[in-house]
Write a protein that binds this DNA or RNA. Structure first.
Length: 279
DNA sequence: CAATAGCCCTGGTGGC
DNA sequence: TGCCACCAGGGCTATT
C-alpha cells in the first residue's frame, strides 16, 4: 500500500524518464478510475502535452504538463505506475496506458482498482478535497514539534486514528503509523490530547525517522508495491511491528499484538508501548 | 464541528 | 480438493 515514502520513491524513479516527454496517446481501459473530468475531457486536457515535472503532495503524485494542467494520481491500495518498453511484458492489471514520444509507455496498473486519477486545470486543486485540505508533511520545515503539539493537544481522537488523518499530518498510512508509535513508545489507544510534551517530542522525531527510513529503503513491498521501474522496496525487512503479530519484539522480545483501532489492523508491542505510564 | 461506521474493490487466505 | 466467507485499508460519504 503506497504511503508517502512509496509515492516519493515512484516520483524519484520516474522523474528523469518522464521529464520532457510528450504524451502522444492515452488508452483508457477502465474509465471509472478517472474521477475528473470524464474520459474525453481527460484526453483533451493531456494528449499532445509535454511533461515538464513530477511532483508529490502527501500521497498524491502530480504530473505537471506544459499547458499548466496537472495529472493527479492517488494509488490507494494497489495502484502502480511503471515506465516500460512498449514490447516489455505488461502488467496483468493495467488500467490506463500513456504512450510517450520516445516510444515507451507509462502504465497505470491497479489490481483492486481503488486508485483515483484526475486532470486539473490551473487553480482547480479544490476539486480534490484531500489535496486541498492536507495537513503538514513530515520532513518539511513546517512540520515542527510545535505544530504537532498545537494540533494534538485539543484532539479527542485515539493517537492511531489521529496519525492516519491526512488533514492533520499528510503521508502516514497504516504501516508507518504503527512503526512511528512503536518507535515513540506510545500505545495506539492513547488519546492524542493526553500525550505529554515529552511524548509529543518523541513522536515528532519518530515520524520523521520512520518516513526517512522508508524512503532510504526504497519503500515497503508486501505484495503489490513497485517503484516506477517495477522494482520492489525492501523496508519490509526493517519493520518493527507491522505484520509481526505473534513474533518477538525486536527491542524487548515481548510478543507483538494485533488489535483493531478505528477499523484498522494495529500492531504494537505491549511492553514498549504501555497504555498507562508506570511510575 | 468532530469522530466513526460503512463503502468501494479484488486476490489471497483460512476454515470446513 | 473445492468452496466460500472474510480480510486487507485510503479516503470519501453518511451518520451519530
Amino acid at each position: 500500500m503506497p504511503e508517502m515514502p512509496e509515492v516519493e520513491i515512484i516520483r524519484r524513479s520516474l522523474i528523469n524518464k518522464l521529464k520532457g516527454k510528450q504524451i502522444v496517446q492515452i488508452e483508457i481501459l477502465l474509465a471509472r478510475q478517472i474521477k475528473w473530468p470524464d474520459k474525453d475531457g481527460f484526453v483533451a486536457m493531456t494528449v499532445g502535452r509535454h511533461i515538464i515535472d513530477i511532483g508529490r503532495k502527501g500521497k498524491y503524485l502530480l504530473l505537471l504538463l506544459d499547458n499548466g494542467n496537472t495529472i493527479v494520481f492517488h494509488l490507494r491500495m494497489t495502484g502502480r505506475l511503471c515506465y516500460t518498453l512498449k514490447e516489455a511484458s505488461q502488467d496483468l492489471y493495467k488500467r490506463i496506458i500513456f504512450l510517450l514520444d520516445d516510444g515507451n509507455l507509462l502504465i497505470y496498473a491497479d489490481t483492486r482498482t481503488l486508485g483515483t486519477i484526475y486532470a486539473l486545470a490551473p487553480g482547480e486543486e479544490w476539486r480534490i478535497e484531500g489535496l486541498s485540505h492536507m495537513g503538514m508533511e513530515p520532513l518539511t520545515e513546517a512540520f515542527t514539534e510545535g505544530y504537532l503539539y498545537d494540533i494534538m493537544y485539543k484532539s479527542k481522537a485515539k493517537i492511531k486514528s489521529f496519525l492516519l488523518n491526512q488533514k492533520k499530518i499528510s503521508g502516514l498510512g497504516n504501516i508507518y503509523t504503527d512503526e512511528c508509535l512503536h518507535m515513540a513508545g506510545i500505545h495506539p489507544l492513547r488519546l492524542a490530547g493526553s500525550l505529554m510534551k515529552s511524548e509529543i517530542a518523541q513522536l515528532h522525531m519518530a515520524i520523521n525517522k520512520v518516513i526517512a527510513d522508508g524512503i532510504r529503503d526504497g519503500g515497503t513491498t508486501f505484495r503489490d508495491y513497485r517503484n516506477g521501474e517495477g522494482e520492489k522496496g525492501h523496508h519490509q525487512e526493517n519493520l518493527f511491528v507491522y505484520g509481526r503479530n505473534g513474533k518477538p519484539c525486536k527491542v524487548c522480545g515481548t510478543v507483538i499484538e494485533k488489535i483493531v483501532v478505528g477499523g484498522r489492523g494495529t500492531h504494537f508491542c505491549p511492553n514498549c508501548q504501555k497504555l498507562r505510564e508506570e511510575s
